[in-house]
């Protein structure tokens, strides 16, 4: 546990002393809840349509594949016309693209970001590294199967896939969402212990709460 995360007593500038417990003060310890589809089928289909046509991507490039996302914002590919846009904050994002290899250090940040996203949320594994480790399969410091650490809705194979492949994957993801099959967030909440065990197995310096809402 890092020193700044330890429970300690702090003296304020006005001489007032108070206790700080970062893990409890700044985070919520509650485990995630599953939110099954709550409305009638027709309403849920309508919502799924809206969700699929308005995909907001978390602007977080985890590996080399992030460079394939940039051209999508430019005139050449222009993903905005498909209802796709980038949000710099996990709170407002729906789609998390794990773009390429995921080192253990980045996995920690990826988990924190993923858990802060709101249900329903989708994960797209971009590149072979997210499927089986790819060219990093024997690396000491990257994960091999992304699906063990967070529920993935769609994989895009390739090293690296071209931006066109990403555009095609958005269209595929829309089909998955419209069919009501993109329930990754609920799968994560239901199999929370399994995912946590997997995550803690590779992250040796676990110094955050179990769930970061």
């Amino acid at each position: 546990m890092k020193e700044e995360l330890q429970k300690r007593t702090v003296k304020g500038p006005d001489g007032f002393e108070f206790e700080v417990d970062p893990l409890n003060d700044y985070y919520c310890s509650e485990a995630p809840k599953a939110h099954p589809p709550a409305y009638a089928k027709i309403v849920e289909s309508f919502f799924n349509w809206a969700r699929s046509e308005s995909i907001w991507i978390l602007g977080f490039g985890t590996g080399c594949g992030a460079i394939e996302m940039r051209p999508l914002m430019t005139p050449r590919f222009d993903a905005y016309r498909f209802g796709v846009q980038w949000r710099p904050t996990p709170r407002q994002a729906n789609l998390f693209i794990i773009s390429g290899y995921l080192s253990v250090k980045t996995l920690k940040r990826a988990i924190r970001s993923y858990e802060q996203m709101q249900n329903p949320k989708y994960v797209l594994g971009l590149g072979s590294c997210t499927i089986n480790g790819g060219m990093y399969w024997d690396s000491y410091n990257t994960i091999k199967k992304l699906d063990d650490y967070m529920p993935v809705d769609l994989f895009v194979a390739g090293c690296m896939p071209r931006p066109e492949a990403l555009l095609a994957s958005f269209e595929e993801l829309k089909k998955v969402i419209k069919a009501g099959k993109a329930e990754g967030a609920n799968a994560y909440a239901e199999n929370f212990d399994w995912y946590k065990a997997n995550q803690k197995k590779v992250i040796k310096d676990w110094d955050m709460p179990d769930y970061n809402w």
Partner: peptide, 23 residues
């Protein structure tokens, strides 16, 4: 660029209302 679709704002609005969790 081509730009967003003309009804995109409505889609974003419905999408945000349809999110199941909030803190």
């Amino acid at each position: 660029r081509y730009g967003i679709r003309i009804h995109q704002n409505f889609l974003d609005l419905f999408k945000n209302y349809s999110l199941r969790s909030s803190i």
